[in-house]
C-alpha cells in the first residue's frame, strides 16, 4: 500500500497530475470494486444465508465476490451473525490481518446492533461497529441472500468514490429507491403502464 499511497501523494503535488490521478483512480476503483473477495465471518444464523448466497441459486461469484476463508486474501469482511464478547477479539484480529484496502459489511441485525440479543443478555456485543469500521449495514434477521448482493453493489458505489490520494475520497452518492406508499395509491401495477423508472 505504501507505494500506491506515495504515488497518490506525488501525483497530487505534480502540476497536471490530477488528470493522471483521476484516471488512475477510475482504474483502481473499478478493479477493486469488481473483485471483492469476501472473508465470510459467519458466526450464527446469517452464515447459512451467506452460504446460500454463494451457491447455485444466488450465485454470488458472478459479482466477483468469491468467499475466501483466509483473511490475507480478502478485501471485504462479511460479519454474518452474533458477535459475543468471547468471539470479538478473534474477529478484531482477523480484521487486522486483512491487507489494506479493506471493507466491512455488517450482515444481519445482530451484527448491526445486537438485534434480538440487544436486551437482557450479558455476553453479546451490540453491533460489530463497536470495534470495527463498518461500511455497509444490512438489516434483517437473517437478511435474504439478495440483500447481501445488494450490499456488495452498494459497497462498489462507495469504492467508486474513493481515491488513492489521501483527502480526495468523497462520500458516495447513494441513490436509494424511494419507497412507495401503498396508502397513497402509488403502487404501480402491471397493466397501468405508469411504472416509474
Amino acid at each position: 500500500m505504501a507505494l500506491v499511497d506515495d504515488l497518490g501523494r506525488a501525483l497530487e503535488r505534480t502540476p497536471g497530475g490530477g488528470i493522471i490521478l483521476t484516471s488512475l483512480d477510475a482504474v483502481m476503483d473499478w478493479s477493486r470494486g469488481h473483485s471483492l473477495w469476501s472473508m465470510p465471518m459467519g458466526t450464527a444464523c446469517c452464515a447459512m444465508e451467506l452460504i446460500a448466497a454463494s451457491f447455485a441459486r444466488f450465485d454470488f461469484d458472478r459479482h466477483g465476490t468469491i468467499p475466501r476463508a483466509d483473511p490475507r486474501h480478502a478485501d471485504v469482511m462479511v460479519v454474518a451473525g452474533t458477535i459475543t464478547r468471547k468471539m470479538a477479539p478473534a474477529v478484531k484480529r482477523l480484521y487486522e490481518q486483512m491487507p489494506d484496502p479493506k471493507w466491512v459489511i455488517a450482515m444481519g441485525n445482530c451484527a448491526v446492533s445486537g438485534g434480538i440479543f440487544y436486551y437482557d443478555t450479558y455476553s453479546v456485543v451490540r453491533g460489530v461497529d463497536e470495534f470495527l469500521p463498518v461500511d455497509v449495514y444490512i438489516a434483517g434477521c437473517p437478511p435474504r441472500p439478495e440483500s447481501l448482493q445488494d450490499a456488495v453493489l452498494r459497497l462498489r458505489e462507495k469504492i467508486r468514490a474513493e481515491s488513492i490520494a489521501p483527502g480526495r475520497s468523497r462520500p458516495a452518492k447513494l441513490v436509494l429507491p424511494s419507497p412507495t406508499d401503498p396508502r397513497a395509491g402509488g403502487v404501480a401495477t402491471a397493466d397501468d403502464g405508469s411504472g416509474e423508472g
Binding site: 458466526t43 452474533t82 468471547k86 468471539m87 440479543f117 437482557d120 443478555t121
Partner: peptide, 25 residues
Amino acid sequence: GHLHRGIEKMAENRTYLQVVPLTDR
C-alpha cells in the same frame, strides 16, 4: 462458547410467546 448469547437468561424476562423467536436462533 464463542456463540453463547445467554438465551436461557433472556427467556426469564420474556413472556412464553416471546421466547419462541429466541428458540429459532
